[in-house]
Design a protein around this nucleic acid. Structure first.
Lengths: 194, 194
DNA sequence: GCGAATGAACGGAACGTACCGTTTTTCGGA
DNA sequence: TCCGAAAAACGGTACGTTCCGTTCATTCGC
């Protein structure tokens, strides 16, 4: 039969999932990564710890999930080369500048850096949502003779993200409005033709 | 009288201090930051936990101490502009490429990012040992008309360190031989006269 | 009735603090 | 000059608390 996967019983509760991730963000913002408490999340979200451990492979992965949920969907409306590059990374800037986003995103990234499983999960997201789009845009700009042919995608990623980690994670410095735009400007200047 | 502070009792044991920091590095390399155990350090170093809590204001600060001890003393022999910039940051590259340095340095930096006290301690080191020397070198290069006048020190720091954090902390990617030299090349290219 | 949910409980581990007895150093009085 | 008291640091043990990750009993919803 089509759709032969018989399903019985209730589905996963969306309410519970959302409450757990929201509680995770509160806990991350208040306590950071090392003092992050799963018991605290369960209490805040009025959820059972069993529900948490059933749906997330590790605590770190849950924290990455909670952080990624902060990112707004990327708006696609750039025509200028610098704008097209900027748009890819703009969600990070927006999330870091809104409310407790700075602390939440920082702690979430620290979790990804400290936990091997969470790190792989987060790098997979990075690959799909930032690295691949950037490579496409740069290839397009190469074809239009706007930038040189010999760029390397990892160099470009380092340039677009390095300063962001430096400020957000290591320095605890604010992310300025237009941060990603100026990084895109730097990138295009370094890669420009002739 | 001068030095009127009466002193009694034995001095701090250098053996114990060194053993504790070495054990901290082992623990960081094996367990990372969140699973880092003070009990484990005490057991490894055959030290009392009281000795640890007496001499370090926080566990994070101890981890930063342990990480900074990995850095070799900077050798000063550059004459070329790029070399002079490189030499300032080279200790980081060397430490990250030696033995378990990659994991130790990563976990140590994660500790600095996650713990507020440890972060301030680490940023003070950054200021004294990297930011100030870099500003001096750049000022010198400005006087020699090698770079433009309108550089900003924080932009320069982001450029020299951002890619390093990106690879070491977030991506867990190896640091290549010559990493800092190529970053210095990028920096001078961006800042070059005319 | 089956699966997901909550809430309580479990043993084990780590936390940070408080003692203990010992050792090392300094100081003041005989 | 010598000696004993005081002070501080040390390894080690123990304590009460918190958190972890898992399990069990029970309820809720399709």
């Amino acid at each position: 039969m089509a759709g032969s996967t018989r399903k019985q019983g209730p589905k996963r509760s969306e309410d519970s999932r959302a409450a757990i991730l929201a509680a995770t963000r509160e806990e991350l913002a208040e306590n950071g990564w090392r003092k992050f408490s799963v018991d605290g999340v369960a209490k805040r979200a009025r959820a059972s710890k069993q529900t948490i451990y059933r749906w997330w492979p590790s605590v770190g992965a849950m924290c990455v999930d909670a952080g990624l949920e902060l990112l707004p969907a990327p708006g696609r409306l750039g025509r200028d080369p610098a704008e097209r590059v900027t748009d890819i990374f703009l969600p990070l800037e927006i999330a870091a500048r809104a409310g407790t986003g700075h602390a939440v995103l920082r702690a979430s990234l620290i979790a990804a850096a400290d936990d091997a499983d969470a790190g792989e999960y987060w790098r997979a997201w990075l690959q799909d949502n930032l690295r691949t789009p950037l490579r496409n845009v740069l290839a397009e700009l190469t074809a239009k003779r706007i930038i040189r042919r010999d760029w390397e995608i990892d160099i470009a990623m380092q340039l677009m993200l390095g300063a962001f980690w430096h400020r957000l994670v290591l320095m605890r410095a604010p992310i300025s409005d237009g941060h990603m735009a100026s990084q895109a400007g730097l990138l295009l200047k370094l890669f420009e033709e002739t």
